[in-house]
Design a protein around this nucleic acid. Structure first.
Lengths: 341, 341
DNA sequence: CGTTTTTCCGTAAACGTTTACGACAACACA
DNA sequence: TGTGTTGTCGTAAACGTTTACGGAAAAACG
């Protein structure tokens, strides 16, 4: 059915070696011959079988992104990643690499899928997200010497791999600073599990800023739940029913904020009027919510491009001129002021 | 680095043929030998190189889902697909198949990416979404005889391929019926491009129901825009500033509904009180919005499983007992009544 | 014209599997 | 003992590429 390099060679009365060299732009092939080969390839719409190619070269020329359903989420996923993937894809394509996204099974930190990709050599490198404070996936990959990069940091024991993260700690500080400047002193923090590294970073900033303002950290104002709408919804009563209510809430996530605002509305509390609300990671949801939610906007697509670049630079096969490699980057989160505070 | 079948054979003092047969569960291998092979494979943690395997067998044992950023969307994507993919993945894994997700470039109806997957034989079949009324991807695939299935129908000229869709027409009818029963007669419809088949189906139901109730279809109550928050936001003025305002609005999409409600709020119109709102495809967003939006909930994960089954049944290599193959299914959309109407 | 260099191309091996085929031993049966 | 059957395994080809190597012809050089 599909035409192989042999068909092409036979059709041109030429050896497959020459065809291959012509297609791959080698120097030692006559200009006219190359022309004929390229034309024939187009006419028979030939394109090389990826399996044959991978087998011979020992590389698949593709990078896998491990996509995981929201931890603790039963239903929907994270639109967050789409623009990131668009950027990743764009940059990889420039170097002739394909991006494949591998769905993790919900529940197990996708160890199983990851192992499968690595062991059957379906990709030359992988990109991880949802990095945890101690991440066994990182241990696994470094141990096996399999190339990877991460979106998000981790507490790494001297391991060296490209990683790109947002400055959640700074965002936590900025959020508190802003609220304090507006007169708030009882500021709640709604966060996911501290295992998730960005949750931990956020809380570090939160605490640090409070202390700097001479405000004692009140454990009853800090609550953890699933990182989705249901989590935000069910966590609010725990925070609001205490005797000394907060006057402001920082949500570590837009989905949690949505659920939280619902719970507030049901209690007759209006965000932006009766209580101030800030969201750490801004999405279109925040902008189009009523009231529009103040949040911190990440530059997702550029991040995808950048992480692709960093990953490529770390791969011997694709590394360009041996410049100094940045291995770790932390990008700022820009605050977008809106109505909710 | 990675151990091959030769290493395994050498380690066991056995031929690679026997090793392969043992691992693949062939009958003609001694029980004790098989045991030894399996143990050694575990110990050396051997797993077969996928490229070698694919090359020999002429099949990659993987299915590609073509994921496209929202048409007209610059920023974020569609969480809709995650549970669908979870179901798809689960069912494929049962048959030993891998699911890979391929990102399309925004803009071109991902023809380029699709071609690449097909021509380099990276997958044995593909799954398409966002089916259009006339879909060139379907033409391309049938022409080349490449197996595929679609999430969503298309106006197919006698082509035969597995497809699974939601009954958007019925949802359109039900939405109108419900609103009419509550006394509404001026019902607006906010939809995406009619090229997108689900948009077309929805409108068919909408018109049909209106006529059945003796209500004339008023073009000024129908508006098209991008299928995202911004689209919903900017389309509302066009519909609400006419002299004879609608008393109810049906949104064909949750993101458009979010944007639309924002625009309504800015005009001082409260959904659920001053105007009725129904959303065709329900997501957690609808449930946790204030007011909670009435919508039609799809069974996404089961749909993924089912479509995987239908696809598998259409592939000669994986087809089970040759039962009658359902080639086309349309699933109901269940209405979830909430506060917005 | 003889020698060296360059240009171009064919040959064949290799990548890691699976599998058709045949060989050999053990066993059953007459 | 001879013949057929069964169980188990090794051999080698094949999948579609890329690439090291060598060789023939053409070009350059003296």
């Amino acid at each position: 059915m599909a035409s192989s390099i042999h068909d092409l060679a036979r059709h041109l009365n030429i050896s497959i070696g020459t065809v291959s060299r012509a297609l791959n732009g080698r120097a030692d092939v006559n200009a006219e011959t190359r022309q004929r080969v390229l034309e024939a390839a187009r006419k028979l719409n030939y394109s090389p079988n990826q399996s044959g190619r991978s087998l011979r070269q020992g590389a698949t020329r593709s990078i896998a992104f491990m996509l995981q359903p929201h931890p603790g989420d039963q239903q929907y996923g994270e639109p967050f990643f789409i623009p990131f993937l668009t950027g990743l894809q764009a940059r990889l394509a420039e170097s002739g690499l394909d991006l494949i996204v591998v769905m993790g099974a919900p529940g197990d930190y996708q160890q199983e899928r990851l192992r499968r990709v690595v062991e059957t050599r379906r990709a030359d490198a992988v990109v991880l997200a949802w990095t945890r404070r101690d991440d066994e996936r990182i241990d696994y990959l470094t141990e096996r010497g399999f190339p990877f990069a991460t979106l998000g940091r981790s507490r790494s024991g001297g391991k060296s791999y490209p990683s790109l993260d947002l400055d959640f700690e700074k965002a936590g500080v900025d959020a508190v600073d802003r609220l304090v400047a507006r007169g708030h002193r009882r500021i709640a923090a709604i966060r996911p599990s501290l295992d998730l590294n960005f949750g931990h970073l956020f809380m570090t900033g939160y605490r640090k800023a409070l202390r700097r303002h001479g405000i004692e950290v009140d454990p009853s104002l800090i609550a953890e739940d699933f990182i989705n709408e249901a989590g935000g919804y069910q966590v609010i009563p725990r925070v609001m029913l205490s005797k000394d209510r907060p006057t402001a809430i920082i949500f570590n996530n837009d989905a949690m904020a949505l659920g939280g605002c619902k719970a507030l509305a049901e209690m007759g509390i209006r965000p932006g009027q009766d209580i101030a609300v800030i969201v750490i990671v801004d999405t279109p949801l925040c902008r189009y919510f009523s009231p529009a939610l103040t949040g911190f906007r990440p530059a997702l697509e550029p991040m995808g491009q950048r992480l692709a670049e960093m990953l490529l630079a770390s791969l011997p096969a694709y590394a360009g001129p041996e410049g100094p490699r940045t291995i770790r980057e932390v990008w700022p989160l820009e605050l977008v002021a809106r109505e909710s505070d």
